[in-house]
Design a protein around this nucleic acid. Sequence first.
DNA 1: TTGACAGGCAGGTAGCCACTTGCCTATGCT
DNA 2: AGCATAGGCAAGTGGCTACCTGCCTGTCAA
Lengths: 87, 87
Amino acid sequence: MFKALADPTRRTILDELTERDGQTLFELCSRLLMKHGIDSTRQAISQHLEVLEAAGLVRIKREGRYKFHYLDTAPLKQITERWPTRD
Amino acid sequence: MFKALADPTRRTILDELTERDGQTLFELCSRLLMKHGIDSTRQAISQHLEVLEAAGLVRIKREGRYKFHYLDTAPLKQITERWPTRD
DNA sequence: TTGACAGGCAGGTAGCCACTTGCCTATGCT
DNA sequence: AGCATAGGCAAGTGGCTACCTGCCTGTCAA
């Protein structure tokens, strides 16, 4: 999961899903290009989404030929739990 | 900062500093070897500490020929703030 | 002052990872 | 059926990075 967060493009994908949840691959591609100037191939974004899914940060819902991507922020709690704030 | 967290050895260093704050380089090296089986060179650990310091996760305090390393968890808040939990 | 100890600097290497290219599968529309 | 769209698979490449080796600097004690 930490490795998933290490890439700027993947973090931007999470931003995009925060703003608009349940996007498809093509939708994400065009929005990443329009709003963030990320000019990557569809395959590149697809691979990023695989990593994010493997990290548990993105959940998938298939519907016909569409594949919707949903953000899951639950794994992020591990971080602040692992290194808690001292008082 | 995200890249700093991407490496398992660096995360273990943060764990070690959580348990015992203000360790020196040599102290960290031996404890990483003893308790976590991390058999890296002093230089490797030193470079990791540089990365962690650049990420703001570790703060340095020099004293004579010693250099003490202190954990700073403040930057971690950015993560949960950036992708907040939906209700 | 000389040796031991704590740490720094710099060049080199090997493995990983983000990205691309090229081709294939599957679903839906007309 | 036939074509366009949404997505998948796999091999190859370039750059980054974690790691090492070798040598140097600075601090303290005997």
